[in-house]
Computed example of a mutant assay.
Amino acid sequence: MQEINWTRTDLIDETEEVVQHQTKQQKEKLDDSEGVLFEEFNENRVKVTKVTVSKEGSEEIGKKEGQYITLTVPSLNIDDLEGMEQLEKAFLKYIEEIHKDIKFTKDSKVLVIGLGNKTITPDAIGPFTIDAMQARQLEEHVDQFILYAPGVTGQTGFETSDFVHALTEKIKPVLVLAIDALATRGTSRLCKTIQITNTGIHPGSGVGNQRTEISKEVLGVPVTAIGVPTVVDATVIIADAVDKVFRSIAKKVQEKNKPSGKLAVTSWTSDSEDEEIDYEVIRPIFGEWSTWSKAERRQLFEEVLLSNSQRLIVTPKEVDIWMTKYATLISNCLFQWIDEKVN
């Protein structure tokens, strides 16, 4: 099949995942380069992925040199207070860790930029967070934060990076925090993940609307990007659905002659995606493509629909509630973090 450059994700571990599922030679090349340090572990229900990318690793996986920390609660749902509390605790811990080398004083200023379009809910996490922080700043009289939601280029006619650059030159902050909505390559990540990275950000890159980057190289001060994945390409949903169907049928065929299968009284529900499944058992039913990897089937849908004018970007129906929850979470954590840093 034609090689596709997968750009519709802003999550570093999804990029790493694609590399790991490519050819054996490519994976060995990545390992030999020693350019990507990949750690993955759980803290209660929060899955933590820490990726450190060197200059060599940047060329291999197409992500900027620096640190990336991804926090995910796979089972998170809209009413899951415990899950949000654990995610908030983890976010506070790692926002401190990624800034441990920056020295703060009571006079230090942190410029917080809320990227995105407030009139389009899936893209409004940045402006929503600025609103939440402004309300709290009025109550608590915190002087360290300078808050700004610049809108998008389509509204202002100017590059967002130019606004931020001008503010940075005027304010002289020790740090710029850029908050934005992200795109993901997995439906299981939608509104269940926060990514923190000290590499800056390209606004709109996940949906093919890449603008001038906001980074230390451009602004001259450290830039940390905080993102929440709120949209996914519709082709990903198709690929995920097909994969789930294939896994379910293959599992049922494998269990058919086992005693445990004969004892089942309810329909089978798919186990963890990490479970090994022998897709060869369904080849006679669906043909060769059923044995392809998930990434290969996804690439097939991408190729077929690449020139389709009706390609869709999809978001959860409860996205307005999720945006409010994440705006509150990020706001609370940033105020608690800065209070601990300067007091």
Rank of each mutant, 00 (worst) to 15 (best):
D32M: 10
K256C: 09
I146A: 02
V265Y: 11
G204I: 14
E296C: 00
Q155D: 13
V218T: 09
E318T: 02
K50T: 08
D10P: 14
K63H: 01
W337S: 09
E60V: 11
D162E: 14
G154D: 06
L115T: 04
N198M: 03
I285A: 07
V218D: 05
A166I: 04
I4K: 07
L175P: 10
P173H: 04
K63Y: 05
D143K: 13
S75Y: 00
R185T: 07
N209L: 15
A234Y: 14
T235I: 14
A90G: 11
L147T: 03
K55Y: 03
T324F: 06
P229H: 08
A239T: 13
D271S: 14
Q2H: 08
I78Q: 05
D320W: 01
G204K: 09
I201Q: 01
G35P: 08
T197P: 02
D240N: 08
Q137A: 15
W268S: 15
T199C: 15
E59S: 12
W337Y: 12
A239G: 12
E340V: 13
F104H: 05
D13V: 07
F286C: 12
V51C: 08
V51Y: 00
F335A: 11
P222A: 04
D180N: 05
A264S: 15
E82T: 04
K50C: 06
Y326E: 01
R189W: 05
P222S: 03
V18R: 14
F41W: 08
Q144I: 10
K325Y: 00
D123C: 06
C333H: 07
V281H: 02
V174G: 03
K27N: 09
E139S: 08
A295I: 15
K244C: 03
S309F: 00
L182Q: 05
K24W: 05
G204D: 09
E302Y: 06
G151E: 07
G151S: 10
E3V: 11
L138D: 15
F246Q: 12
V18G: 05
Q137M: 11
I113Y: 02
L306F: 14
Y279A: 04
L87A: 03
E40R: 10
T324G: 13
S293P: 00
D101W: 06
T324I: 12
G154Y: 03
L177D: 06
S248R: 12
T199L: 10
D101G: 01
E65M: 11
E302L: 13
I61P: 00
V51M: 02
E96G: 07
T105Y: 04
E303I: 13
E96A: 11
G186E: 14
F335C: 13
P150G: 11
I249N: 06
K170W: 00
P316D: 02
I12Y: 07
D79W: 00
P127L: 00
W268L: 15
K29M: 10
T70H: 01
C333G: 09
Q195E: 11
S309G: 02
F246L: 15
